[in-house]
Amino acid sequence: MVEFVRYQSAVPNRNGHFPGVFALANGLRHNGLLTPEDVRWHQEANRRTTAAYVDPTTVDPHCYDQTRNPGARAWFAADAVELLALTVPYLDLLDRYDVPWVQLTTRAPGRIVYRDGDQVVAVPHSYPDDWRFPAARCPSPSSAAVDDPRPRPQRSEARGAGGARSAGTSGTAHDARRLMQGDR
């Protein structure tokens, strides 16, 4: 069962991070790439979003601290239907400006450092302290290759920690609407 949804850049930024949907839209505006009409829409949409939903940093100023919580990122709760609906126009904006993005879904986004009824901020499972299996039970890649010389099949669907999966190399706002309507 999907519990969390994230929309993020399909490619990392210069710092190796994958900015989320709101950061991508803000980046378009900050870099002067939006039309005047889209600038007006974006400013109003950001005002509505800020008024309606908690900014996690106002509750925990350290939730995105890269020393305490390396790689922390926000995820929407899958049942936060109104918040997910609010993201669709942002995704439409990204589509109009050809900004590639992906939709990720998971049951376990990582070590949760902030939670409210609509969202979590979590440190991804990619850090060694979050690995749940004992090292002694994991076969080494070199011993597996010696034991079985056959070529390994390649999976076409990328999966991440906690069952996270990408909806493809880039999403569309239509894909986001389908998720909200339960067509998973």
Results as ranks from 00 to 15, higher is better:
M1Q: 09
E3S: 12
F4L: 02
V5D: 06
R6H: 01
Q8I: 00
N15V: 00
G16M: 06
H17T: 14
P19V: 03
P19M: 00
P19G: 00
A23G: 00
L24P: 04
L24K: 04
N31E: 09
G32F: 09
P36H: 07
E37N: 11
D38L: 02
W41M: 02
Q43R: 13
Q43V: 08
Q43I: 13
E44P: 03
E44V: 02
R47Y: 13
R47N: 09
R48A: 06
T49E: 01
T49C: 04
A52Y: 00
A52S: 05
V54M: 11
D55E: 12
D55Y: 09
P56A: 00
D60N: 12
D60G: 01
P61G: 06
H62C: 12
H62L: 14
H62I: 13
Q66Y: 05
T67H: 15
P70G: 05
A72Q: 04
A72W: 00
A72V: 02
A72I: 06
R73D: 01
A74M: 09
A74H: 04
F76N: 05
A78P: 03
A80Y: 08
L84R: 11
P89G: 09
P89I: 02
L91I: 10
L91P: 04
L91F: 01
L94N: 11
D95K: 07
D95W: 06
Y97S: 03
Y97P: 04
W101T: 03
V102N: 07
Q103E: 04
R107H: 10
R107S: 03
R107N: 11
G110L: 00
I112V: 15
V113C: 13
Y114S: 02
G117Y: 07
V120E: 06
V121K: 03
V121Y: 03
A122R: 09
P124Q: 14
H125P: 07
Y127G: 10
P128L: 06
D130R: 04
R137S: 15
C138D: 14
C138E: 13
P139G: 11
S140V: 05
S140G: 15
P141R: 09
P141C: 10
S142L: 11
S143F: 06
S143R: 11
A144H: 13
A145I: 11
V146H: 07
P149M: 09
R150T: 11
P153D: 08
R155F: 02
R155N: 05
R155S: 07
S156T: 14
S156D: 15
E157Y: 01
A158W: 12
A158K: 08
R159V: 09
G160N: 06
A161K: 07
G163E: 13
A164G: 14
R165C: 07
R165L: 06
S166E: 05
G168P: 00
T172N: 12
H174W: 13
H174I: 07
D175H: 01
A176H: 14
D183Q: 14
D183S: 13
D183H: 14
